[in-house]
Design a protein around this nucleic acid. Structure first.
Lengths: 337, 337
DNA sequence: GTGAAAGCGCTAACAA
DNA sequence: TTGTTAGCGCTTTCAC
């Protein structure tokens, strides 16, 4: 293994000079710099991560804590994780992947040991057990999601209330009066992550202003569950003309069932989805949707975190402005109402 | 920050004793051990990861290199990643997530710096640029996937050839004579990851033995692409009665289109999928399938890697035996042929 | 069964 | 602009 000392010797300079060439924390003459860089090349030197972390008390690692449930919401999570890793690298950080299984203790472990300089928490619950530990640790942290009490922590999330409101506005603008929301699985609401609730609240508020009638149905993503929900919905609300769907898994079953039921989209029924753009585009019909900007959330989370590590930022809540893109799945409410 | 020295002082023992209590690498009297453990508790001590890595030249970190493409094959990748992290923790390792963007250089970086003790590579291509670097580094590594030249490297993968063969056997056993394979997107074949090719080869070989006629169609996962492929297929092979699908995305569109086409499953058409179990179970019909055992692959990869880190294992190829589970989507070939 | 002490490879004062 | 040096907190050999 090549060490900094060997590089120094090979280049005929002191160890600190090599270190400073690497870090750029002090001005080095062009010649010296070149000599050192050449030696680094020739010897194939890689700074030892452990030694560096010990001496500088910075590991240049960000911990990313994933959700507890593997099955849920998967594409978004994956997209966020990859984007976090990518942006972290741009700032010289690597990403340590923590799963939920270890529980809140994982926070203490990686932070207490100095393994990670900072943490990003995904899938934050309203009253998340990890938050007290995080606050106590004093380490920089960013939450992707919005707990009930952000108090001092930095949060990045989509403004789901506004997302819901946008759906209501869009459908109302097209003349719909009676709409149904197919929501996430009941388990999601039970876990109290908040985003699903915020969506429906925002939607309900706007619906009231606009005189829309709303029925909300949490629903599993399986074909059978969607079929069941749909059956009930059409019984309870025969006049429904608009669907808002916040449940990736339920989307294809829903479209498929409506088709079987000879209800044309968007002529008879309009559908608006809250989902990642990719999902809105890949199905049997291009869906009008409010995009969940996974990458942008990841980017912001990393930027905020890096700023905090550098001591340049305080706890704040950043809600991304949602955008509704009208595509082929929504249109004017049918005349007969 | 609490250090080992402080714990030692608090417990009235030497630093090395505390270290040995922690590592268990030498016998300690019960009393001493208890005293030390109490001090650790009381002071809230966490061993410093950097110092530990420096002194022991072991980081207790495994690097997991994800695929280059975010969009492809996502649920399986996510499942593997989570399972790798979980099993790694069981062996005291954390997992560093590397994305493909950094390219093969990432291998050198994490391994050269001692950041990671070992690497797991996902989404391995037949002629993967990372492999020479990996071999040169001499670090323990496990590939999930099977390159053209494993030479000395440990590989874990599903025996896709056998998976393909199982599909042929199953359909032949039900009396089908004319089958179509809906494969992965052309891009997957172009990338030469090999698994898709191995499947079709295994299937073709068995099909020949059993007198099956086979048409293979790579296909994008979009609804439109599947519709196009299906149209062609029924023109070229009007007598087809069996489909084998190795393309998660294409599954729902296919089922939906067959339904629209008034072809009943399994009465008119049998469908066998190669996919994760979850995918086979969640759709509109429970699919006969060969399971892609993501978790098992992850588990094996970690076990092999840990063995290699401990110096107990050499390079070997482990192909997991596939299993076909007959469910509702396959049945006897229709009588009329 | 326990302690003393020499590093591990690097960073960052302090000096020049 | 560069060099000298004292640690960073831990592991592990050597000694008892």
């Amino acid at each position: 293994m090549v060490t900094l000392a060997e590089v120094a010797q090979h280049a005929g300079v002191s160890a600190s000079t090599v270190s400073y060439v690497l870090s750029g924390k002090r001005t080095i003459s062009a010649v010296t710099k070149q000599r050192v860089e050449r030696s680094i090349q020739e010897l194939g030197y890689h700074p030892n991560a452990g030694a560096r972390a010990l001496a500088s008390s910075r590991s240049n690692i960000i911990a990313l804590m994933m959700p507890l449930r593997t099955d849920m919401y998967v594409p978004v999570m994956m997209e966020i994780a990859i984007a976090v890793a990518t942006h972290a690298r741009e700032h010289g950080f690597d990403v340590l992947m923590l799963t939920g299984e270890e529980g809140p203790a994982a926070v203490q472990r990686v932070v207490g040991s100095g393994l990670a300089d900072a943490i990003i928490l995904m899938d934050v619950e309203l009253d998340d057990a990890r938050l007290p530990l995080l606050r106590a640790s004093g380490r920089p942290a960013v939450l992707i999601g919005l707990p009930a009490e952000p108090g001092g922590l930095t949060c990045v999330d989509l403004d789901f209330a506004e997302a819901g409101a946008l759906c209501a506005t869009h459908l109302a603008g097209l003349g719909h009066r009676d709409i149904v929301v197919i929501g996430e699985a009941p388990a999601v609401y039970e876990r109290k992550t908040g985003f699903a609730e915020r969506t429906i609240e925002g939607l309900r508020g706007r619906a009231q202003e606009l005189g829309l009638r709303v029925l909300h149905r949490p629903c599993e993503g399986s074909y059978a569950a969607v079929a069941g929900a749909l059956g009930q919905v059409f019984t309870e609300r025969p006049g429904v003309t608009g669907f808002v769907v916040q449940n990736e898994q339920a989307l294809e079953p829903l479209l498929s069932l409506l088709r079987q039921d000879r209800r044309a989209i968007p002529e008879d029924i309009s559908v608006v989805a809250v989902c990642p753009e990719q999902v809105a585009l890949q199905g049997s019909i291009r869906l009008t949707s409010v995009t969940i900007p996974a990458r942008e959330m990841a980017r912001q989370a990393v930027e905020r975190l890096v700023a905090k590590i550098a001591g340049e930022s305080q706890g704040e809540v950043f809600l991304l402005e949602p955008e509704l893109v009208a595509r082929a799945s929504s249109g004017p409410a049918p005349a007969g109402g």
